[in-house]
């Protein structure tokens, strides 16, 4: 192994890691927003919204994220959507992970015992009051861990945007391989940095889950 080379390129990988982190954070935020909207649609009393929610989920979970990215980035300009690679990456991955988060959130909400909603409604609460004060606080606890799983998958899927040349970790590794012909070293650095990011996020999720359980 060429340690000297690894040391020399490491600062550039660190910079790329920040891009990966930024991409992950923005994607997670967009994913959560899409997830909340998707969940609201899927649980709506209007059949049209329920249908749209279900269509969203099956469309984005039923096709490869890479194809979705390609359609947005390469196909977008054809239908008047002009995005730079980073924007396309955030929007493409965010909307994609939102479909998974929709299912996570909906699953947690319907996992709350039916008797809870009945007790709340029986006291005179409206559907929304019961949701807001009784169902959601319990569902939130149930969804922390599975959302953590979505987050983990999301961080790894940011590697896909290398294919539309966003200069994040994977793309940086590929670029240095082109000039150094040392794929083992380059992918090793990228892999270790991914692992560190994912580990820290995993610890954060576990802590949040424990805190939610205690209170």
């Amino acid at each position: 192994m060429d340690y000297e080379l690894m040391q020399r390129v490491f600062p550039f990988f660190l910079e790329a890691a920040w891009i990966t982190i930024l991409l992950s954070v923005l994607t997670a935020v967009l994913g959560l927003i899409c997830g909340i909207l998707g969940t609201a649609a899927r649980l709506s009393r209007f059949v049209v919204l329920r249908f749209l929610g279900a269509a969203y989920v099956s469309l984005f979970r039923g096709t490869p994220a890479l194809i979705q990215l390609f359609i947005l980035y390469f196909g977008g300009p054809q239908i008047g959507i002009q995005l730079d690679a980073f924007e396309a990456g955030v929007i493409g991955l965010g909307v994609n992970v939102g479909a998974y988060m929709t299912e996570t959130m909906r699953g947690a909400i319907i996992a709350v015992d039916k008797g809870q909603a009945e007790a709340a409604r029986t006291l005179g609460m409206s559907r929304w009051q019961a949701m807001r004060n009784v169902i959601l606080p319990q569902a939130m606890r149930l969804m922390i861990r599975p959302l953590g799983v979505n987050l983990n998958a999301l961080i790894k899927s940011t590697a896909l945007v290398a294919a539309i040349s966003v200069v994040e970790l994977t793309y940086t590794a590929q670029r240095y391989i082109g000039s150094t012909y040392k794929p083992f070293e380059m992918f090793l650095i990228a892999g270790v940095l991914y692992m560190i990011i994912i580990y820290i996020v995993g610890v954060g999720v576990a802590l949040a889950d424990r805190k939610a359980r205690i209170t």
């Binding site: 008797g115 009945e118 029986t122």
Partner: peptide, 13 residues
Amino acid sequence: IGMVFQHFNLFPH
């Protein structure tokens, strides 16, 4: 109308 259920349905949180 107050209602009392077999399985209590207290709010656990």
